[in-house]
């Protein structure tokens, strides 16, 4: 399977199953598009007819090079990965390596678009106790097998509303990680309201990454991100975030924005963040039910897709100006990315990755918390709902019929189970709107990577 597209001056051909990327000239691009459906003479005559200023010898040379790529297994490569789809999960069955610790099911903001219903996850307000958190870390170590890298995200709600417990849990983990031969990587997601010098010093010492919620333009951010009196939070948090990022040396953070039906032109929000001095950016489509006023519509889609293209051009332009920035979804390492076993096995939710509620219940990931039928078990007795866990374990790129003919399947690994469930009622479904956005993001990400690889940042 191949995918070919044009981006700026580049004609890009992705050979999906070999992973080879080809950057080709115009006649070769056309030859590839006809190669499998027509015979050699037809392809060459049609190409010669279109490119009258190119000699027949040269067109035959193009054809020969395409044929050579196919022969060497770098073009039109067959998909032979399906039998391997369960290998990594089978090999690591029962191993847990990452937890999303719901340290606080409460929040000091009242954002109406929050997928976690203002941090309460459709339940009662709650803070995780140190004892529950400590047991969660012990559960992670006990179930991590030979994995050395263990990841714990402090999440909510607003985790800084339970900051003392966060600090004690990190201290506990650091006290045992050497003895257990583990390496804890902590991350913190915060709305910024409670960020102060103490938080900054602690996070810079202990957090391998911090995720800072900012939606961009003041009027966009303050539309949804308000306190319980209805006041916008932009003025309060932006100076705190600027201080936070400066203290981190401008590294190991993401400004994490959400775009909605109110701002499908989210590139303007990215530009605002750049103007504020932030350079590590992640801007994500809202998770909202169809019909929700914040939900993206079909009419928004072409606007959003255009933003992704313009964003790629902006990145290359700023590269050339010596002012680079990072966009999370365009951060693709062409040569050091995940191996094929990871690419076909899915994200690991419900198997190697779980969410822990303030009272110690286990869920497949943070987006399923509060939906009782997805409860996997708890941190004392482990997973006892094996039916749900097996359903997640079998989620891979080949478990979804709609993914079979998609060129992007080895980049998304079948996509997000939560998005699939919320849009189709099945964790093996397909969130088609999200797929359209994902494919565009991958086209742009690969184009940016190709431009950088070839040293042609325009």
């Amino acid at each position: 399977m191949i995918h070919q597209y044009k981006f700026g001056e580049y004609n890009i051909v992705i050979d999906v199953c070999s992973g080879a990327l080809h950057i080709v000239d115009d006649p070769t691009y056309d030859i590839i598009s006809m190669f499998e459906a027509s015979n050699r003479d037809t392809v060459i005559s049609k190409t010669a007819e279109k490119y009258k200023d190119i000699s027949l010898d040269e067109i035959e040379e193009c054809y020969a090079q395409v044929a050579g790529l196919k022969e060497s297994g770098k073009l039109f490569t067959e998909d032979t990965f399906e039998p391997m789809a369960g290998t990594l999960k089978a090999k690591t069955s029962g191993v847990v390596k990452a937890l999303c610790l719901h340290i606080a099911h409460t929040c000091n903001l009242n954002c109406s678009y929050c997928f976690a219903s203002q941090g309460k996850y459709h339940g009662e307000r709650a803070l995780m106790s140190f004892d529950v958190g400590k047991r969660a870390l012990d559960f992670l170590i006990e179930n991590s097998g030979t994995r050395r890298n263990l990841e714990v995200d402090f999440f909510g709600g607003e985790p800084l509303m339970n900051f003392d417990v966060v600090k004690k849990l990190v201290e506990y983990a650091r006290s045992i990680e050497k003895e257990k031969n583990k390496n804890f990587r902590f991350t913190l997601t915060t709305n910024g309201v409670l960020v102060d010098k103490d938080v900054i010093d602690f996070a810079n010492r202990e957090m391998s990454n911090v995720v800072l919620s900012l939606d961009g333009r003041k009027e966009v951010h303050d539309r949804y991100r308000v306190d319980y009196s209805g006041n916008g939070s932009w003025n309060k948090i932006v100076p705190k975030f600027q201080e936070f990022v400066k203290a981190r040396g401008g590294k190991n953070y993401y400004m994490r924005g959400t775009f909605t039906h109110a701002n499908p032109d989210f590139l303007e929000d990215i530009k605002t963040m750049l103007d504020l001095g932030f350079t590590e950016l992640s801007m994500e489509p809202v998770v909202a039910a169809e019909g929700d006023p914040a939900a993206l519509t079909e009419a928004d889609k072409p606007i959003v897709l255009k933003q992704y293209e313009e964003l790629a051009r902006l990145m290359l332009k700023r590269d050339k100006e010596g002012r680079p920035f990072t966009f999370y979804h365009y951060m693709i390492d062409l040569k050091g990315g995940p191996c094929i076993y990871k690419r076909i096995s899915g994200c690991g939710s419900g198997t190697e990755y779980m969410a822990v509620t303030p009272w110690g219940d286990l869920y497949p990931c943070h987006q399923f918390v509060g939906d009782e039928k997805f409860k996997l078990g708890d941190i004392w007795k482990g997973v006892d709902n094996t039916a749900v866990q097996n359903e997640f374990a079998s989620c891979n790129v080949y478990a979804r019929e709609d993914c079979r003919d998609c060129w992007a399947k080895l980049y998304c690994s079948g996509g997000c189970a939560a998005n699939a469930y919320h849009s189709t009622g099945s964790v093996r479904g397909i969130y088609k709107y999200g797929c359209d956005l994902f494919r565009k993001r991958m086209e742009c990400a690969i184009a940016v990577a190709v431009a950088r690889e070839l040293g042609d940042a325009e």
Partner: peptide
Amino acid sequence: KHVKTITKGGCGECQTACKIANQACEN
């Protein structure tokens, strides 16, 4: 040259921002 080309069960050490292609191999 009309073409420029550029990308042995897994170990699972790679990292599990937004809440797979963007990951790096950590073996």
